[in-house]
Design a protein around this nucleic acid. Structure first.
Lengths: 299, 299
DNA sequence: TAAAATCCATGCGATCTACGTATGGCAGCG
DNA sequence: CGCTGCCATACGTAGATCGCATGGATTTTA
């Protein structure tokens, strides 16, 4: 079997045109180099050097091998560096699975900060509802996932990041706009613009309202938070949305958010999930730390 | 140290997505493969596979290594084949040093036959006088040399191929043209067209004539056999040339060659020379055999 | 849900390999 | 003709690799 250390010895002999000098360069003794070359020559069934008195010169076979050995040794060196880069976090890839709300309103600034710290790390984001995200992580399509709700899978590790703060969103012209908080029961009779059935958000809101004994008055159903916000701005109704999804409009005065009082929000806990048996490269670890500190600082 | 057999094991695991199946493909046991990968991971300080329950998947570092390992393993395979081709004579390079007479009149048909047998072998021919050719061989610029005269160097091996047959060349219109042979002494008084001083041929001819007690009547001195022949055709004189250099013109009737009688031709022996300590690849050996059989057949 | 099957990791002993030291042989040089 | 420089070889030791046996964990199956 031809081995890399033999090719390195061969290249050293070529470079130094001497077994002895090659041995010095390789921190070996001359007999060791002689045997490496002899092993190569035996394995390839071809002499690689003519031992011409005091000098050595490549044979035709040696020149041929040299052309390949050069590339092989160089590639091996590059491979080491490339892997070291990965390990140092200087390169790599992070695949994140997240709900579209998080992907749209929370991840962008965080990813921007991450990119500044790790500019050569590729980032991919796949969106989906929590169950889909969990599946992505389970089959290793995503390195980590951001999900709401429980994580029943024993193979996955979950750490709580923060809670979705759900707020009631109204247009600035709305009578409620002057208030800062509201209870679920006060929403009875209001025209509600809702996410379409089957989403985590809809299930949660339905639960809130029915617990408060409120009969829903759904005037509109959309599959898209952005669209819902535009509807509210057009004064077609009000809605209950994650605070993160409206903070920009609230700051600019285009929408008003009211705190919901008397509501347990543990059920809307955001969790960071990854496979328990998966190795976490440096870049991935750094990204996870970034998520955790960001969660702590915002609530 | 990263080794080729480890990379092959790594590639096998990647290809089969399983240590066990890789082991079968490599004719090894599974623990052996496990240890190869473990050694790589320790050496590179990076896990290469996530052991996800029943399946294994590459980590980011693994994918990075894979990109390099693929090329490295492929190049190593190609190198083996390339060297084997050289060794089988299917490829390679043959560098010949020869006098210009041999290079011009003898080598072409032989090289043509050689190329038919070994089409992928590169052939280079360097011309020079015998001393130059010997030097080419000595410093390994030429694999073999074709020289006339003695080979004093103990580091070189010489085998006799044939003798230059030196003939007297006259135009068809010349009075001597009707004869088939001539002695050196009969050339007294004839206008001679000679090679320039310092060449082997000139030295030889000078020796011949002075041994026969003939005073030379040199009408012209040229450094080029072709030019001499044109001069003879133009009826400007006659000359003594190697038979091989005029056989084409003799066959077509443009020149007439007369045998020289009473002349020892041992001093114009053509010898095949190569370094004693040089390895002779298959293609080179074949070419040398070709030269020897050609010499035997032509006398 | 318990048993069976599958797969990777690890401990152990034997074998093989690769190294360094010492030494020999050969060519080139004074 | 001895000296020097360089590659090849012999030998003993240290380390590496292999197969076998086995353990631990997960997935599949009954």
């Amino acid at each position: 079997m031809v081995e890399l250390h033999q090719l390195e010895a061969f290249e050293a002999v070529v470079a130094h045109r001497s077994f002895t000098r090659a041995a010095v360069a390789l921190h070996l003794t001359q007999p060791a180099v002689t045997r490496q070359i002899a092993a190569l020559e035996k394995e390839l069934r071809a002499p690689l050097f003519d031992r011409l008195g005091r000098t050595v010169q490549m044979t035709t076979a040696g020149e041929t091998l040299h052309r390949y050995a050069e590339s092989i040794v160089r590639l091996a060196r590059e491979a080491r560096h490339a892997v070291a880069d990965i390990e140092a976090g200087a390169a790599g890839r992070v695949a994140v699975g997240a709900s579209s709300t998080l992907a749209t309103y929370v991840l962008p600034p965080l990813l921007r900060r991450f990119r500044e710290a790790y500019p050569r790390v590729e980032i991919t984001v796949h969106t989906g509802v929590s169950a889909q995200v969990l599946e992505m992580v389970r089959v290793n399509e995503a390195d980590i996932g951001l999900v709401t709700g429980d994580v029943p899978d024993r193979a996955l590790t979950a750490t709580a990041l923060a809670d979705y703060e759900t707020v009631v969103v109204v247009p600035p012209s709305h009578p409620l706009a002057a208030r800062s908080s509201i209870s679920a029961s006060e929403l009875a009779g209001s025209p509600l613009i809702m996410m379409e059935a089957g989403t985590n958000l809809r299930t949660y809101v339905d639960g809130l309202l029915s617990a408060a004994g409120v009969e829903e008055q759904v005037t509109m159903e959309l599959d898209n938070v952005e669209a819902i916000k535009r509807m509210i701005e057009a004064e077609l109704g009000l809605s209950m949305l994650p605070e993160v999804s409206v903070s920009a409009e609230v700051a600019s005065g285009r929408l008003v958010a009211l705190k919901l009082t008397g509501v347990p929000h543990a059920r809307r806990r955001i969790r960071l999930v990854h496979r328990r048996d998966k190795y976490l490269p440096t870049a991935l670890q750094a990204f996870m730390r970034l998520l955790q500190t960001a969660a702590k600082n915002t609530g």
